[in-house]
């Protein structure tokens, strides 16, 4: 097995794992973290596929901006859910 093939197989397994976990996790916060992880792994995959420009865009938009926005949204949601009881 060449290193390149090993790299790709590991990456595919990790992509499938993080995607599946992000979809089936009940906790919103955990799902967002897994979504960010998926985005960053996807950027690595684009890098492997010889598309560094898309890797850049994926890391910037998919993982960075969307991730930060989703995390912010989770913060607001939690404050709303728990706010009235305290």
């Amino acid at each position: 097995m060449t290193p390149a093939l090993a790299f790709d197989l590991l990456l595919i397994a990790a992509l499938l794992w993080s995607a599946a976990r992000a979809l089936i996790t009940a906790d919103v916060f955990r799902a967002v973290v897994l979504f960010i992880v998926f985005g960053l792994l996807m950027a690595l995959a684009w890098a492997r596929l010889g598309a560094p420009d898309i890797a850049l865009a994926e890391a910037a938009i998919g993982a960075g901006l969307t991730g930060a926005l989703l995390l912010d949204a989770v913060g607001h949601l939690r404050a709303k859910w728990r706010g009235p009881e305290r």
């Binding site: 960053l40 850049l56 960075g64």
Partner: peptide, 9 residues
């Protein structure tokens, strides 16, 4: 970009 955005998230 990776280094920057990991920091932002």
């Amino acid at each position: 970009v990776f280094a920057l955005l990991a920091a932002i998230s």
